[in-house]
Design a protein around this nucleic acid. Structure first.
Lengths: 343, 343
DNA sequence: GTACCTCCCGCAATCGTTTGTATTATCGGA
DNA sequence: TCCGATAATACAAACGATTGCGGGAGGTAC
């Protein structure tokens, strides 16, 4: 009783050979066995509560029904929804999710990839940052399917599910433009991260589109996607261009950094300077003032990544390149028409 | 080249039988094989880049070198650190971490437990809420080691690593008392969750300890650990006791709910009403005003849970019951001496 | 009546390890 | 010289599934 019921038990119970039982239980081979035998085996399996042993199966079939998800930092609220989204579609198909967080730097990410390959995951979802993937990751494509999420590689050689940064920045810039802003700055993310580069390019692009001059001087790059670097960047930006009335931040935390910078200059947010964030992490609506932010459908991003991964695993030919998910804009009170100049 | 190097290859390379190779590579059996043979095998293994196949090994040994972590909600910022802490010690020992999030309710948690058992995880870390564990979870103890984190069961029958809620609430109550508050209320979490009950009991206990009357009327239970229920609870509490000058919230989100309630009554936080949170989630210091909160060492909680789990797996007899981790208090500006009455 | 085909099913090998047992070689002691 | 103990290694059976192959039963066509 303490030992699990095995295929042999089912076979004995149904009065057939173990191989017949195997075929009967496997949907793709059930057709070559007598329908009523199938029924008898299925019934026996049900009665005995049979569960195939995943290790034994994996050993034979080289498929483990598990996929690895590698993220840069579990503690970043961004990745919760991504994981949840991916997991929801993967468990649906019977896959298990191995999570690895590479919070100790890119080399750690590589060793995680190797660990996972060693465990024979069927697929890999990479959410680690960077605009290029390491050699080991590239090699990994040989042994397992792979898709990127929330990042892409410069040459688009690996399928990637990303938010439409161009559209997202567009939402922010147009929103500010419609409010009447004309001097808009951008606190950018690190340029070695794909989102950092893309959003910055998009910002300059949209500035000209809405009829403002796309001065590279209006962009200041933060060292990292955190509050503190955001403050620093915003301060140098505001010192260089004191007449700026709005800032598009490449990230919510950078936006919060801008909050601090603006306050430290004695100005008031949403009046003297409007600020937009990006991602719309939780609690943003509880800030003072609540922050207007571009909302990215991260959960769906995870789900889509999982779906295309499953397609890849199933052998479908998925064209590499990016799938863009449309963002929306959550308008709150950190943005408002510019204060009347000269007042 | 495309096929991985197997033990057979190593054996051939070293000129020994496969079983000898196996023993040579396994530290616990290496003693029964000639030392220089061990060296030769090890050398061959190194040269060929041999990695044992985890599935094959698991099939034979019934150990998968993987543990499952089940959390109620990946998107809750609480669990990031717990996972990170657990993972950091587990990967160190060569274990992989399977994550399951039970965001679809307790029955889903059960099915996750079953999934993981089916995959033969060596251990299980449960962070799901509730003061009792389901029958399936209890059964699971037979097949795998198990420890609870951030929760406990009423009868303490399963080892649990939890924050010291009594001490934590004590920090908050004493802090407020020292500031001069005498009418302190408590917005409690759901009583069916262990932290909800524990913190509420602790609150009443500490009130008498610091010489205030522990009126059950000063406690209002929120339906769930979220902002909205917090607002509702705080409002009914403040309506019942308008003279309250401080609120101890059982959770940061409930605390933020209190923020809203207090504001909607036209009072100002940190002046008319002081508020303390619990957990100290990120961004709390960026709120207006920054919230004073009890900080729980979640990362260490995860790490400790993993350590005791490893001990259990190794066959150590771990006394069930709770291990308490000491919280600290992050004092910010949501707490201050009560406004002078009558002013 | 034989040949042939189809349909089911059983046999056995296989995936890569671990591990109980058998075998061989070596050596000390009587 | 021979025996028993000991050490080192080889053999083979597992673990629990999947799967190519072969074979028996039954039917049809000639």
């Amino acid at each position: 009783m303490s030992t699990r019921t095995t295929l042999k038990d089912v076979a004995r119970e149904a009065g057939v050979h173990i191989s017949t039982a195997s075929r009967a239980l496997n949907p793709s081979t059930a057709s070559i066995v007598n329908p009523e035998t199938v029924e008898r085996v299925a019934e026996a399996a049900r009665r005995l509560g049979y569960r195939p042993h995943p290790l034994a199966r994996g050993l034979r079939t080289n498929r483990t029904m598990s996929v690895g998800v590698i993220i840069p930092d579990v503690e970043n609220p961004l990745f919760g929804p991504i994981i949840a989204g991916a997991e929801s579609v993967l468990v649906e198909e019977g896959y298990s999710v191995l999570i690895g967080n590479a919070d100790m730097g890119p080399s750690h990410a590589d060793s995680l990839v190797e660990d996972m390959l060693e465990r024979h995951v069927d697929g890999l979802i990479l959410a680690t940052p960077g605009r290029v993937v390491s050699e080991v990751a590239r090699q990994a494509q040989r042994d397992a399917s792979m898709v990127l999420v929330n990042r892409s590689v410069d040459d688009d050689s690996i399928p990637a599910i990303v938010g439409d940064d161009h559209a997202g920045i567009g939402l922010a810039v147009r929103h500010l433009r419609e409010l009447g802003h004309e001097r808009i700055g951008h606190v950018a993310g690190p340029s070695w991260v794909s989102t950092g580069k893309d959003r910055r390019d998009a910002f300059l692009d949209w500035m000209t589109t809405v009829g403002l001059d796309a001065d590279i001087d209006l962009v200041e790059e933060a060292e990292w996607y955190q509050v503190e670097p955001g403050t620093t960047a915003a301060l140098t930006l505001l010192r260089r261009h004191p007449h700026i009335t709005a800032i598009v931040a490449a990230n919510d935390l950078l936006g919060l950094g801008c909050y601090r910078a603006v306050r430290s200059l004695g100005k008031v947010i949403g009046v003297d300077v409007s600020i937009t964030g990006y991602n719309d992490i939780p609690l943003l609506d509880l800030m003072q003032p609540p922050m207007t932010a571009v909302r990215v459908p991260y959960r769906q991003m995870g789900a889509d990544a999982a779906s295309t991964l499953l397609a890849l695993i199933a052998g479908a030919v998925v064209s590499p390149g990016r799938v863009l998910l449309s963002p929306t804009l959550a308008i709150r009170s950190s943005t408002a028409p510019p204060a009347v100049s000269g007042r």
